[in-house]
C-alpha cells in the first residue's frame, strides 16, 4: 500500500510536483474529451434502422424509434421522414450515404439497373426533403 510522502527531500518534492502537474493535465484532458463527445452526440442519429416503425409518420415517436431521451434528438423531423420511407427506399439511401456504395452495386442487390437505382435514390432524397418541409 502506498502512503503519501512527507514532502521532504528532493525525490518527494519532485514526485509531488509531478503528481500535481499530471492531475491537472488529466482532469483537463478528461473534460475536453467528454465535452467533445457530448457535442458530437448532439448531431448524430442512430443507425439501428430495424427498430423503425413503418406504420406512418403520425405514429412515429423519435424516442421510441431511436430508443433514447427525446430531448436529445434535435432533428425529429428527419427521424419521422426516414421512418416513413419503405424498406427499399431506406436501403437505397443508407447503402448510398452510409456505406458509400455505387448505384450499380446497389442495383445488383435489388435487381435494378444503374439508371433505375440512381433515379430511385434522387426520388428518395426529394421525398425526404419534401417531408421535412411540412
Amino acid at each position: 500500500m502506498q502512503f503519501r510522502n512527507d514532502g521532504c527531500g528532493i525525490d518527494n518534492i519532485t514526485r509531488n510536483a509531478f503528481t500535481a502537474y499530471l492531475k491537472l493535465r488529466i482532469e483537463r484532458k478528461r473534460r475536453d474529451i467528454l465535452a467533445k463527445r457530448a457535442r458530437r452526440e448532439l448531431h448524430e442519429i442512430g443507425t439501428d434502422f430495424d427498430t423503425f416503425d413503418v406504420s406512418g409518420p403520425e405514429e412515429c415517436d423519435p424516442a421510441k424509434i431511436c430508443g433514447s431521451d427525446p430531448v436529445t434528438w434535435h432533428n425529429d423531423r428527419l427521424v419521422r421522414a426516414f421512418a416513413a420511407l419503405d424498406e427499399r427506399e431506406r436501403y437505397i439511401l443508407t447503402a448510398r450515404v452510409l456505406d458509400e456504395r455505387g448505384f450499380d452495386e446497389i442495383g445488383g442487390v435489388l435487381g435494378m439497373t444503374y439508371k433505375g437505382t440512381a433515379s430511385a435514390y434522387y426520388r428518395v432524397i426529394g421525398k425526404l426533403r419534401d417531408m421535412m418541409k411540412e
Binding site: T14, A17, Y21, R25, I26, K29, I33
Partner: peptide, 18 residues
C-alpha cells in the same frame, strides 16, 4: 487517451530545481 496524456506530461515536465 489519458495514458497518452500521461506520457506527454512525462516528456514535458521539468523537475523543480531544489
Amino acid at each position: 487517451e489519458l495514458c497518452e496524456e500521461t506520457l506527454r506530461a512525462i516528456l514535458q515536465f521539468k523537475s523543480p530545481e531544489v
